[in-house]
Nucleic acid binder design. Structure first.
Lengths: 174, 174
DNA sequence: GTCTATACCAGGATAGAC
DNA sequence: GTCTATCCTGGTATAGAC
């Protein structure tokens, strides 16, 4: 791992656990065993470091959503979307916590990937003949956020809740 | 309004719009037309000021939930809970934004009122004969959060979504 | 209760050597 | 690419007079 990568991973870790504002570049440098100046050489300023951290995470996140975008069976699309939160490995939890925090405190947080998922879901509900596909897709997004909150914030086991939600859509099959 | 109250209301306004960390006591003092020292006389430190701001807001929030806690008709309880977010007046939006932000970045954020609502909802679902009342109550909480997000973050009109959710529970009546 | 003045430190950021 | 040293600002907080 290059020093640049070490900085990036330590920054993610600290931003996620303490928050962006509460984390100083000093701290990051110390924990990464790197001089503070190096951070600014590589990322220009603190904001730039945050953006790099986000970009890195977003790429990982897109990999979850991409497979769904390629599916054709509407039921499989909906089910996969709902189950999305349960497939996030523990080592990525901190990153997602950071993302949800930023969602509430920064206007321009990245969410293109989710918009694509939203469209895919709308199409899926449409092809299943639902009355208001956009609203149904929006509801799925709400379920995803709710499950994510349960996992990331309360550290709870989401399987029971996930099952419950699934039965709302696939009553006779599960 | 006493100077203490002016400080409190300005602090709420600034914490909510810019965030807690990003707001300096300097700024609060200036905008409240008050010396900075006075803030620390009244609230000991910045953290104490935040707590006072929260306490004030929580009291207001409890007033929304209390009427529901006194209801007896289970259907009315569920419906009222779902409609909760639509009844928050615009001038309180900033406060709720602050609360949702803190939910993600502070461990001990106040939520007793919501826990009470949760219990009331569980009892309501139980009396209606639902299979897993706890999970159903948790789902309502997720809906509330989802609707709040729609209103506070995207500034969207939640009525269509609220109606959609209501039909999930009261299909034949609406 | 309130203000003025001030201490003091930590934050982000830069310069320059290697 | 990396480190050392340093700057400067602005942040929280206190002391003491009124």
């Amino acid at each position: 791992m290059s020093k640049k990568e070490i900085i990036l991973s330590k920054a993610l870790e600290l931003f996620a656990s303490r928050g962006y504002d509460a984390t100083s570049t000093r701290q990051i440098a110390t924990e990464a065993h790197v001089s503070e100046g190096l951070i600014f050489r590589h990322f220009h300023n603190k904001e730039g470091l945050l953006e790099a951290v986000l970009l890195q995470g977003i790429n990982k996140a897109t990999q979850y959503i991409e497979p769904i975008l390629e599916m054709t069976d509407p039921r499989q699309i909906i089910e996969s979307a709902i189950c999305l939160p349960t497939h996030v490995p523990i080592e990525e939890h901190e990153f997602w916590k950071l993302l949800y925090t930023l969602k509430w405190q920064r206007a321009n947080y990245p969410q293109e990937a989710f918009d694509q998922l939203q469209q895919k879901l709308t199409a899926a509900f449409e092809s299943l003949g639902f009355e208001s596909p956009e609203l149904e897709a929006q509801l799925i997004e709400i379920y995803i956020d709710g499950l994510a909150t349960e996992i990331l914030l309360r550290g709870g086991d989401p399987t029971a809740l996930t099952q419950k939600i699934l039965t709302k859509y696939f009553k006779n099959e599960h």
